[in-house]
Design a binder for these strands. Structure first.
Lengths: 156, 156
DNA sequence: CGTGAAAGTCGCTATCC
DNA sequence: GGATAGCGACTTTCACG
């Protein structure tokens, strides 16, 4: 069971994973060691799964984001296995979700431009059968954060 | 202009931002200092925008992901401003995209359960008018990575 | 569960090839 | 642009309230 200070730590580290423990400790009203112990505990318990570098999409020449709704041609394990393998294989696919509703799956794909998206699309339909694929191009990224709300974490 | 080693560095740091420079240097076949200089350069040029801690959604009690397609009631600046403010205000909204096609905007929302989603939904429609909102619940996260492909970065 | 200080590691700088 | 060496800072541990 965590407390309010742990949540505060998580919020800060979700914004910047590189803050020195001393700075972090000061921000949450602790001294270094207990703060460090808490961070360690959060890592050990898996609440902090890992720390990653975020790369600027535009500067990495993948400014374009495409959302693709996918319908499976048939609902059987074999197709799904192939689909999973494809998703793992294609680095342009950064998110893949199985949904309720009309579209079975939603993919988020990042590419340099439309032509490259088409190339990725061609690669996908060559590997696997689809009953339907509908693409929506993202015109603007209004919000994108890796920080999830901490307010639902049960605190004592 | 970057080179293959820079791309390799980016790939590694996108998986783990905490690797010691010495380890990173070894992996890309360099010694510490030049490797550190490259990392610094990648940060200065903004290719690495920041480093963040990723929090386990389930352990943070927000296992549920909902995608919400939104249609604007009218296309005017005033409504959009309100929409932006709402998105910034609601921490459960972790992604918001303006799209081409039928749905104007796509939101990704993380919550503990359906009841909480409904509470978020009620809060949203109290703040702002919508012409249409359709929610799809994510049943499974097949892939989610913050790592974008490096293969499109122009190299010399 | 907290503080404070000591020890070891690593980031960062300076210097040279 | 790349290697070697040293300093300072930070993480991490230990001993103690």
């Amino acid at each position: 069971m965590l407390d309010a200070i742990d949540c505060k730590i998580l919020e800060i580290l979700q914004q910047d994973a590189m803050v020195p423990v001393a700075t972090l400790a000061e921000k949450v009203g602790l001294s270094s060691t207990p703060c460090w112990r808490r961070v360690r505990k959060l890592e050990d318990e898996g609440l902090i799964s890992r720390r990653v570098a975020l790369v600027n999409r535009r500067k990495a020449n993948v400014p374009m984001t495409v959302f693709v709704g996918v319908k499976a041609p048939r609902h059987e394990a074999e197709w799904l296995d192939g689909f999973r393998a494809m998703i793992a294989d294609v680095p342009e696919i950064v998110e893949a979700w199985r949904l309720t509703g009309e579209t079975d799956y939603l993919l988020r794909i990042v590419v340099p431009d439309v032509d490259t998206y088409d190339a990725v699309y061609q690669r996908m339909i060559k590997k696997l059968e689809f009953s339907d694929m509908s693409a929506s191009i993202a015109m603007e990224e209004l919000k994108f954060t890796t920080a999830i709300p901490t307010k639902y974490i049960p605190t004592k």
